[in-house]
């Protein structure tokens, strides 16, 4: 389909204005001089300075980053294993239960996941802190990783692995030398997804964190409940900025890869 009608143009324009205007306002007002967020009183970067001096926020950010790093890394390992088992594992006892447990957390309301994990940790007598948040985040984000990786594995030509076996690889070597390098992009995007989910999560972290460890979303939430503050605006701007840069870099590199693939295609045709 092509050829945009005026209706298409209007709906796209309004749609994207709706998606981006709120964030834009947030960013603009983070440079507002005034304490009152809704009244413009001149340009200033003082809230960024305030933010940099706010120990509580910095601590929370550090906790969040550590949690996100560890949970997404463990989740990537477990999720890739789970995806491999689901796509290539054949039949085994409890396969239905296993795939059910992989997909269930994707649709499970966060309040329920959080509640159930908290009750488990209390039942085990574990002190709530960074460890419990990491465990909780790993559990739900490994499911996302396994969905991303298994969709890559499904489209993966099985004969590549067979060719590796045929040429003398043991199954472990075949995975290391052939499968892993090919599915690596999916594994990396799985890791990024898990990392983002962990950074973003409020509900499950609220249930599983203790007084010793507060994550950034929990901090933001308790601040936001009281009202809109310029400091949160500044923090939001930083977070939006990081994501925007990341997504733009990612899309440029995909575009580069596409251009290169097209060039390769032409090269291949020329050599006929």
């Amino acid at each position: 389909m092509s050829k945009l009608s005026p209706f298409n143009v209007v709906s796209l324009t309004l749609g994207f204005v709706f998606l981006y205007l709120p964030m834009l306002i947030l960013v603009v007002y983070s440079f507002n001089e005034s304490q009152l967020v809704t009244v413009w009183a001149g340009f200033s970067t003082k809230w960024y300075g305030e933010l940099a001096r706010n120990e509580a926020f910095l601590d929370a950010a550090w906790v969040t980053l550590r949690v996100a790093f560890f949970s997404s890394t463990i989740a990537t390992v477990l999720g890739t294993m789970a995806a491999y088992v689901l796509v290539r594992g054949g039949r085994f006892f409890g396969r239905t239960l296993f795939s059910g447990m992989i997909y269930a957390p994707l649709v499970m309301p966060e309040v329920i996941t959080g509640l159930s994990l908290l009750l488990l940790f209390i039942g085990l007598g574990m002190d709530r802190g960074i460890l419990t948040i990491v465990l909780a985040h790993t559990t739900f984000s490994m499911c996302y990783v396994s969905v991303v990786v298994s969709s890559r594995l499904v489209s993966f030509d099985k004969s590549l692995e067979e060719a590796a076996l045929d040429l003398g690889c043991s199954p472990a070597e075949a995975f290391r030398l052939v499968t892993l390098p090919i599915i690596a992009p999916a594994v990396i995007s799985g890791w990024l997804l898990a990392f983002t989910l962990s950074l973003d999560d409020l509900v499950i972290a609220s249930f599983t964190s203790g007084p010793a460890a507060t994550t950034l979303p929990i901090k933001i939430f308790s601040a936001v409940r009281l009202g809109v503050t310029p400091e949160i605006n500044a923090l939001s701007t930083i977070m939006i900025g990081i994501v925007t840069v990341g997504v733009i870099i990612a899309s440029i590199s995909t575009k580069r890869a596409k251009v290169k693939a097209e060039a390769d295609e032409r090269l291949a045709q020329r050599t006929e």
Binding site: F16, P22, I25, L26, T196, P217, I220, V224
Partner: peptide, 21 residues
């Protein structure tokens, strides 16, 4: 990319943005 970008941005912040509006 424009549709997916908000998805990677913090959910909490996107909801928070509307409080000011």
């Amino acid at each position: 990319m424009l549709v997916i970008l908000p998805f990677w941005t913090s959910f909490l912040i996107r909801v928070y943005a509307w409080r000011g509006i």
